[in-house]
Amino acid sequence: MASLQKSFPIVARDFVHAGEASIHVQSILKAMRMDPALIRRIAICCYEGEMNAVIHGGNGQILLAIEADQLNLAINDDGPGIEDIERAMQPGYSTASEEAREMGFGAGMGLTNMKNNADAIHIDSAPGQGTRVTMRFALPSPAEGP
């Protein structure tokens, strides 16, 4: 698969445009004719990461990097950071605002969905230092010709 790098901005608390970056990523992967099941996994991770940044984070960006054998998705924001990453990873735990909860966010499932759908996930965050979530997806190797 051809290598590709793209970035998409995320604006904190912008619920009007939230999700559009993930839709853009999905359309890129579809145009590349990637396996639909793999696209769905990546779309879930991208959306959850994007919404986490919109709900909790500061401004940031989604970085999509496609290489021959793997796809990397990084969601970076310069928000308040995560105080207790282990706790944030627990299903059902959420610090989402009342506004976000009323919209059906804040179920404490976002990071769990990301963990369940990415081949690997790494979270780098500390209070006052923003958050960088990186996820890796293995890509099937192209069929070898004779």
């Binding site: 619920f15 009007v16 939230a18 999700g19 639909p36 769905r40 879930i44 959306y47 959850e48 919404m51 919209m103 059906g104 966010f105 179920a107 499932m109 976002g110 969905n113 369940n116």
Partner: peptide, 22 residues
């Protein structure tokens, strides 16, 4: 939304009370 994102099948109709843009 996260629960729907995780579990809704492709090609489904989604029944919800949420009417906002997300």
């Amino acid at each position: 939304l996260s629960e729907v994102m995780a579990s809704a099948p492709q090609g489904c109709v989604w029944l919800t009370v949420q009417g906002h843009q997300n």
